[in-house]
Write a protein that binds this DNA or RNA. Sequence first.
DNA 1: GACCAGGCACATC
DNA 2: GATGTGCATGGT
Length: 223
Amino acid sequence: MTDENRLQEIFRRLLAAFGPQHWWPGETRWEIMLGAILTQNTAWTNVEQAIGNLKRAQALPLAAVRALPDAVLARHIRPSGYFNQKVKKIRALLRWLDGEHGGSLARAARVPTERLRAELLGIWGIGPETADSMLLYAFNRPVFVVDAYTRRILPRCGLFPAAWEYAQVQAYCVAHAPAGVPCYNEFHALLVMLGKQFCKPRPRCAGCPLQTRCATGQKRKCP
DNA sequence: GACCAGGCACATC
DNA sequence: GATGTGCATGGT
């Protein structure tokens, strides 16, 4: 079976098993972008609490977040973890929006994909996964999102080495996965669903007296 | 109590 | 360039 067929078969099976995921769980472009920052290295349930806090305080809209003092914003998003860092990232996002697009997401949405991606990657605190999540889910661009689950699951299916970096994995998926915004949307969501349920991080090293993990993501190194 | 979660920036070698 | 570390809460 070719790589293309294997990846398409994985997509087909996941869709059959889990059904459409209806991502992204956010109602506006802004809410999706905010969620993309808040979910960095954080369980979505924690992000839901943070967004719930903002909603209850009627502080979720872009203009409301803009008007919040840092300390208040930090208090609202506290459940999502790394709250001081995330306040800085949200401020950096707003600075970009104001500086490049007059504070208008509608204007930002008219920027071609490659340039928009470059702009997002230029924002402090926004790396490739967060930028691509924003592009796909907030701006409806055909960009394949690679996350920790993608990089864990597909190598275990034997598709490529686990050591591949972001851009390599993305290029592979673009080359072999079913194309287009709806498929990219669903594929990423389905990989997350599968990963949460069945694909825990790398197994512990057999016989390691520390019972810890080696290679990326580890807390300590095996002796 | 350890591990994990829909990363990223920065320091150090 | 590769590797390690800080950031932090909440669920299991």
